[in-house]
Amino acid sequence: MATTIEAPIPTFEDESSGERKLAIICSKGSLDMAYPGLVLANAALSEGIETHLFFTFWGFDIINKETMDHLKFTPLGNPATHMPPMLMGLPGMTSFATHMMKKQIEGIDIPDVPEFLELITDAGGHLWACRMSADMMHLEEDDLYDRVEAIINAADFIEISEGAQTIFI
């Protein structure tokens, strides 16, 4: 039998991942627009990448204690549903579509928004809230999810995201 060589050892690129940094701006608060940022943040963290999430405007609904567990999906004006637009405006359609989407998300074992934020922060992710949005909506830190680190202004965010790849959602 031919002799075999030692198995390769994965590098896991520990050194290079230490330099990479990601900032995700979450500006939308609908159920379908909340998830992309959360999924990406979680994936980046599990790759050892420093990750910051900045919630602004409608994205505030994701970290507002009152709304975070009740995000909605509206099929109205969304061609991706492949349904007649007129039907999508009928009463009850948003709650029906939201219910369906939540079931689908749960069905593939994806956490709801509060659990997702817990997962992200347990993995070392940073959550920041936008000062201007907080002022507009008359919200204080107490109104926000406990693990939001602070309400910061745009300049603070620019400072925090220095050297980061930035994604706007």
């Binding site: 994965p10 896991f12 520990d14 991942s17 050892g48 074992d109 347990d122 993995a123």
Partner: peptide, 30 residues
């Protein structure tokens, strides 16, 4: 706890655990 997994298997716990356990890397997004 997730926090503990990051302490035990720094930076890339999912992949490192799979490697040590002799299993494929997890395929799910979350």
């Amino acid at each position: 706890p997730t926090k503990q997994l990051f302490q035990l298997f720094p930076k890339k716990p999912a992949k490192k655990m799979a490697y040590i356990a002799g299993l494929p890397k997890p395929v799910g997004c979350v």
